[in-house]
Amino acid sequence: MTFKLIINGKTLKGETTTEAVDAATAEKVFKQYFNDNGIDGEWTYDDATKTFTITE
């Protein structure tokens, strides 16, 4: 399955996707992406659209 990440950061904005077997696996991938890029904020997940959103 394809999961999308929408980034609404102070310095970084955009979208990316990842292929994962489930939302929990995608969450781990995206959290690592947050850490690697110094993004910290509030994030949500919409199961209907398989979209994670992080807002700094």
Score class of each variant (00 low, 15 high):
Met1Asn: 12
Met1Tyr: 14
Thr2Phe: 07
Thr2Gln: 10
Thr2Glu: 10
Thr2Cys: 11
Phe3Leu: 01
Lys4Asn: 04
Lys4Val: 11
Leu5Pro: 01
Ile6Tyr: 04
Ile7His: 04
Asn8Lys: 13
Asn8Gly: 03
Gly9Met: 15
Gly9Ser: 12
Gly9Ile: 15
Gly9Pro: 02
Gly9Lys: 11
Lys10Ser: 12
Lys10Ala: 12
Lys10Met: 13
Leu12Trp: 14
Leu12Ser: 12
Leu12Pro: 03
Lys13Ala: 09
Gly14Val: 15
Glu15Gln: 07
Glu15Lys: 05
Thr16Val: 11
Thr16Tyr: 15
Thr16Phe: 15
Thr17Tyr: 14
Ala20Leu: 02
Ala20Phe: 04
Ala20Pro: 01
Ala20Gln: 07
Val21Gln: 11
Val21His: 11
Asp22Leu: 02
Ala23Gly: 03
Ala24Cys: 09
Ala24Lys: 11
Thr25Val: 06
Thr25Phe: 08
Thr25Leu: 05
Ala26Met: 02
Glu27Met: 12
Glu27Thr: 04
Lys28Val: 11
Lys28Gly: 08
Lys28Trp: 09
Val29Trp: 10
Val29His: 11
Val29Phe: 14
Phe30Ser: 01
Lys31Thr: 05
Lys31Trp: 06
Lys31Asp: 03
Lys31Tyr: 06
Lys31Asn: 03
Gln32Phe: 06
Gln32Met: 09
Tyr33Leu: 12
Tyr33Glu: 05
Tyr33Lys: 07
Tyr33His: 05
Tyr33Phe: 11
Tyr33Trp: 13
Phe34Gly: 15
Phe34Lys: 11
Phe34Ala: 15
Phe34Cys: 15
Asn35Arg: 13
Asp36Arg: 09
Asn37Phe: 15
Asn37Leu: 15
Asn37Val: 14
Gly38Ser: 11
Gly38Glu: 08
Ile39Trp: 12
Ile39Asp: 04
Ile39Tyr: 09
Asp40Leu: 13
Asp40Val: 15
Asp40Cys: 11
Asp40Gln: 15
Trp43Arg: 00
Thr44Glu: 09
Thr44His: 10
Thr44Asn: 07
Tyr45Ser: 00
Asp46Ser: 04
Asp46Lys: 02
Asp47Pro: 12
Asp47Ala: 13
Asp47Ser: 12
Ala48Val: 10
Thr49Met: 06
Thr49Gln: 05
Thr49Asn: 05
Lys50Val: 02
Lys50Ser: 05
Thr51His: 01
Thr51Tyr: 01
Phe52Pro: 00
Thr53Trp: 06
Thr53Asn: 03
Thr53Arg: 04
Thr53Ala: 04
Thr53Lys: 04
Ile54Leu: 12
Ile54Thr: 03
Ile54Asp: 00
Thr55Ile: 06
Thr55Ala: 05
Glu56Phe: 09
Glu56Cys: 11
